[in-house]
Amino acid sequence: MQDTPFEVYGSTLASRLLIGTAQYPSPAVLAEAVRASGAELVTVSLRREAGKSRAGESFWNLVRDLGVKVLPNTAGCRSVKEAVTTAEMAREVFATDWIKLEVIGDDDLLQPDVFGLVEAAGILSRAGFKVFPYTTEDLLVAEKLIGAGCEVLMPWGAPIGSGRGLNNVFGLQALRKHFPSVPLIVDAGIGTPAHAAAAMELGYDAVLLNTAIAKAGDPVMMARAFARAVEAGRLGYCADPIPPRDMAEPSTPQIGRAFSDLSKRA
């Protein structure tokens, strides 16, 4: 099939790889990795800082110099109120109504609190936000998020930072089949380029990851690797892969095989 541009909330993104900006060894490596990844959308956050510190300012200048779009998050928010307030603060500072909505329900797995997530998504959508919800692969939660106004869904591959890849391939596949025209982004849990390619081969529209690049031994090389993996996975999906078979099927033609009249199995 012919590939179509990746569109979300009326914007077209040339790259289907979205990356986080945290945990890099240095700002210079972050900048180089973003460029190597080809990502056009990067996630950012808001944090406390003392009045005299300038760390936030220098980070923000660096991101602006990269010329990419930003997707602020509500990372770490534990309640609807915290998430909604953080989103409102982010909209003013980053001058965007896009928000990666996280409402975290469990510290061990950083699992989304899907009940709070649906509620916060509704509040923010009504307030004009374009919500990118970090959710699970649960189909009914997905339906409620769409009902709440979300035009994109971001199910996890595996818990944030775990590098486990796609924990529930069948669930992600079912979600893709159930929502053929909703932009779906695998967010979190991706560890290697192969995981990203696998998500794209399932027909996911994009992947969002951070730790897998930032904490790699060579983040810039890894960013390049992910860029290629995402592109390869997308091309593979569009090229309509063969179905798997249980038995072998020879790829070399059988007609005209030498000795074909002599070699017979008993």
Binding site: G20, A22, Y24, S45, W60
Partner: peptide, 26 residues
């Protein structure tokens, strides 16, 4: 509290104020 509303936003004893800046995020 929006930036434009800060001059007209009174503080009271015991208030909890958050002041946040852009930072790296995932």
């Amino acid at each position: 509290v929006r930036a434009v509303d800060r001059p007209s936003t009174p503080l009271n004893p015991g208030d909890a104020v958050e002041i946040l800046v852009p930072r790296q995020g995932g």
